[in-house]
């Protein structure tokens, strides 16, 4: 058995890497697509399997999910903006380190803001706010998009990806809080006689919820594929490249 030959190959093995929104040279996209892509079609969590750590760790209630989603949205947008502005000033060799520094700065701001505004939630999220720094989704957008595009496009892309992240977080949070506590955003939905499914707010519940969502997607996709026999849609026109 042989291991992968290089780090790039290793990354290619990573889930969803082949559709991780890596821009090909000379490729163009429309502004609308830049925004919408991240929202659904290439949703960072549900499709690309990026940023799983917060998506599983803090989604036991809707409030936590929302707070985490917003904080991440803020960091992503801020970083993309800054990276896009300074992209020509950053030397290629140290670009990753610079990206991380920029991200870390925004995370520190988010951390301090949350602590001041919603101390309860800040406490519940704990170390996971600091861990936004190493959310591969954010770094991935800088490397793949913001560092190569004008400011406006970079912002659109960040908005889209951030919204997609929030959608996924709230989706996870709603399912888990609804079943695990019988409530949504703290308001009881099923009444007092509901027997909560404690597992949903425990770690295994995180894995299982996302797993079930993905299974449902798989089922849905399978049904769609059975209805319309269509060619697999590669992102960013990869299919046309292959054909050529």
């Amino acid at each position: 058995m042989t291991g992968p030959e290089s780090a790039t190959e290793l990354v290619r093995h990573a889930p969803g890497a082949h559709e991780a929104g890596v821009l090909l040279p000379g490729q163009t996209t429309t502004p609308g697509h830049d925004f919408l892509r991240g929202v659904w079609e290439e949703n960072p969590v549900l499709v690309q399997m990026l940023g799983l750590c917060p998506a599983l760790a803090v989604t036991n209630t809707v409030a936590n999910s929302l707070a985490m989603g917003l904080a991440t949205f803020f960091v992503l947008t801020g970083s993309s903006l800054l990276v896009s502005i300074f992209k020509n000033l950053i030397p290629k060799e140290v670009r990753i380190a610079s990206f991380i520094l920029i991200i870390a700065t925004f995370v520190t701001i988010a951390d301090l803001t949350l602590a001041a505004v919603v101390p309860n939630i800040h406490k519940a999220l704990g170390a996971f706010i600091a861990l936004i720094v190493v959310n591969c989704m954010i770094l991935g957008r800088q490397e793949a998009f913001a560092s190569k595009r004008p400011v406006g496009r970079a912002l659109l892309d960040a908005f889209g990806t951030g919204v997609g992240f929030i959608i996924a977080m709230v989706m996870m949070g709603s399912i888990r809080e609804l079943l695990g506590n019988g409530s949504l955003l703290g308001y009881s939905v099923f009444g007092p006689s509901f027997e909560p499914w404690i597992i949903m707010i425990l770690p295994p519940g995180g894995f299982l919820t996302l797993g079930i969502i993905l299974l449902a997607f798989g089922w849905w996709r399978g049904r769609k594929a059975a209805e319309v026999p269509m060619v697999r849609r590669w992102p960013h026109g990869v299919a046309s490249r292959r054909a050529a």
């Binding site: 027997e195 499914w197 404690i198 597992i199 425990l202 295994p204 519940g205």
Partner: peptide
């Protein structure tokens, strides 16, 4: 194990 984690009291 699922039941144990979901409904520990019951």
């Amino acid at each position: 194990a699922f039941l144990q984690a979901a409904f520990p009291a019951a």
